[in-house]
C-alpha cells in the first residue's frame, strides 16, 4: 500500500466528516494493524473492495464516540443496538470508501454494501495476504480509526505484462 492510498482515506474521511457531520478530524500517524490498537473496537462498519484493488475498509469506534458521531450525522440520539444506528454507521463507511476509491488513479474498484458489527472487544480479521494499515483519527466526538487492508490485483499491478500474455494467448 503506497502513501497515496493512505492519503486517499485520510482526505475522504476528512471530507465526509466535514461535509455531512460538520466535524473536523485530525489524522494521526498510520500504523500496522498488527500493532495493539489504541482503543477497543465496539462499533465497526465494514466494506469490501474488489476489482483492481481488493481488500477491506473498517471504520471503528468506541461506543461513546460512535454515539457522538451519529448524533452529529443524523441530529438524533440513537440506541447503538438499533437498526437505524447500524444503518448510519454503514452509510459513513460507504461514503468514506466510495470517496477514497475515486482517488485511486487508473484503477477500477467496486465496493460492497456495508456490514456493521456492534459488540465489545470484537476484532475484524483482515485478509492475511493484504497489507493492513490503521489510520487513527480524533474529532470533537472522540477517537476512532479507519483500517484499510488492500492488495492490488495482478492485472492492475502489471498491466503491460498481462496484455502481452493475453495477446500471446
Amino acid at each position: 500500500m503506497d502513501a497515496s492510498s493512505i492519503a486517499a482515506f485520510v482526505v475522504s474521511t476528512n471530507e465526509v466528516f466535514r461535509t455531512m457531520l460538520s466535524l473536523s478530524v485530525t489524522a494521526g500517524k498510520p500504523y500496522s494493524c498488527c500493532t495493539v490498537p489504541k482503543f477497543e473496537n465496539e462499533v465497526s462498519g465494514i466494506i469490501g473492495m474488489s476489482g483492481d484493488v481488493q481488500g477491506m475498509v473498517v471504520l471503528s469506534f468506541p461506543t461513546a464516540t460512535a454515539c457522538n458521531v451519529i448524533r452529529s450525522f443524523t441530529g438524533m440520539d440513537m440506541d447503538p443496538s438499533s437498526p437505524d444506528f447500524a444503518d448510519a454507521i454503514g452509510e459513513l463507511v460507504n461514503m468514506i470508501s466510495g470517496s477514497a476509491k475515486a482517488k485511486f488513479e487508473g484503477k477500477t474498484v467496486s465496493i460492497s454494501c456495508p456490514s456493521v458489527v456492534v459488540g465489545k472487544g470484537h476484532k475484524v480479521q483482515q485478509p492475511s495476504d493484504a497489507l493492513c494499515i490503521t489510520i487513527p483519527f480524533e474529532c470533537a466526538g472522540g477517537a476512532f480509526s479507519v483500517e484499510v487492508a488492500m492488495k492490488v490485483a495482478r492485472a492492475a499491478a502489471h498491466p503491460t505484462q498481462n496484455t502481452t500474455a493475453a495477446k500471446a494467448a
Binding site: T74, G90, E91, C113
Partner: peptide, 9 residues
C-alpha cells in the same frame, strides 16, 4: 436509497 439515514437527510 437503501440507507434510511440518507433517505431521511
Amino acid at each position: 436509497d437503501d440507507s434510511k439515514t440518507m433517505r431521511t437527510i
